[in-house]
């Protein structure tokens, strides 16, 4: 066993985000001592993974094991909605999940387009111009400093093009596999985006955080591992977007547990060390007001 008993630098007792302040674990030397103990005993957190491994082994032995409603027996918690993608068209679960993702990316891309138009003083109906240099910040920054406003506006420009690319990629992936991608909502999408850049970014931030939770909730149900890998590369980008927009508007970078969230890992040391997820039903309820 190597010696890990060194203490944190004396001045760095902070670990300041409010979610850690509650936890005695992050207080100076105490942190490392407990840390050391858990490395040595290694058994303090058996609850989640032991169950998961055993369930995984059982499932591997019985590859088609499903519950009474036809879902895999080892899904994350006993939430009957977690694997329910029936609202989305598709010949397979994977195709339904890709259409679920496409539904959200279409909405997200359109809200970004509108947000960018609003922040640039263009009519909301203006189509997205993927040449970002045609956009100039021309709205009150709200509570943002000049430098944060410039950076935040730059993110809007970049991310609007990225979300459009995600949408187009998913649609063509579904088509290439012989499936039928869902169409955009005929009535379009709407959001109260506010009257300044800070308010716009707060709305967009919520949309990104919703996307992160949707992908994580769906991930375990994707059967094809290469499809899962591709979906995860989009999820990763959404997490990056959410974090830096949080940073611009002065929120904790996340993950930050929200009211409807389910935990992916039962963590006795805090709520925000792992991403959270929501069921398709919860996600659809959250985004319903955006669908005109």
């Amino acid at each position: 066993m190597q010696d890990r008993a060194h203490s944190w630098p004396r001045r760095n007792r902070i670990f300041t985000p409010t979610n850690y302040r509650r936890s005695r674990r992050w207080n100076g030397d105490k942190y490392m001592l407990e840390n050391r103990e858990s490395v040595e005993s290694g058994t303090s957190r058996r609850t989640f993974l032991t169950g998961a491994v055993l369930a995984g082994l059982a499932a591997a032995a019985l590859p088609n094991a499903v519950d009474a409603s036809g879902r895999p027996i080892f899904h994350i918690v006993n939430d009957p909605d977690s694997g329910d993608f029936h609202e989305f068209p598709g010949r397979t679960v994977d195709e339904k999940i890709l259409n679920y993702a496409l539904t959200l990316e279409t909405l997200e891309a359109d809200l970004y387009r509108q947000a960018l138009n609003l922040a640039s003083g263009k009519p909301l109906t203006t189509p997205l111009d993927t040449n970002g240099s045609s956009y100039t910040l021309s709205i009150d920054p709200g509570g943002l400093s000049a430098s944060k406003a410039a950076v935040g506006f730059g993110y809007l420009v970049q991310f609007a093009a990225v979300e459009a690319a995600h949408r187009d990629f998913l649609a063509s992936a579904i088509t290439a596999d012989g499936g039928t991608p869902v169409s955009p909502n005929p009535g379009g999408y709407q959001a109260d985006l506010g009257t300044d850049l800070q308010q716009i970014l707060e709305v967009i931030r919520n949309v990104e955080e919703t996307g992160v939770r949707a992908y994580l909730g769906a991930a375990q149900f994707i059967k094809n591992l290469h499809t899962l890998q591709t979906a995860a590369t989009i999820y990763s980008t959404e997490a990056r977007h959410a974090a830096v927009i949080n940073w611009v508007i002065g929120l904790p970078i996340g993950p930050s547990r929200e009211r409807l969230d389910s935990v992916a890992v039962f963590d006795e040391h805090g709520d925000n060390n792992f991403e959270h997820w929501q069921t398709p039903k919860q996600i659809l309820r959250t985004v319903a007001p955006f669908i005109a």
Binding site: F48, L49, A52, V53, A55, G56, L57, A59, A60, P72, F74, I76, V212, Y215, L216, A219, Q220, L228, A232, Y235, S236, A239, G254, P255, A264, V265, N273, F274, E275, H276, W277
Partner: peptide, 14 residues
């Protein structure tokens, strides 16, 4: 197996 996907993805996102 599927058992680890959610936990691993929950780390990856952070």
């Amino acid at each position: 197996t599927r058992a680890f996907i959610t936990a691993a993805a929950a780390i990856q996102g952070t």
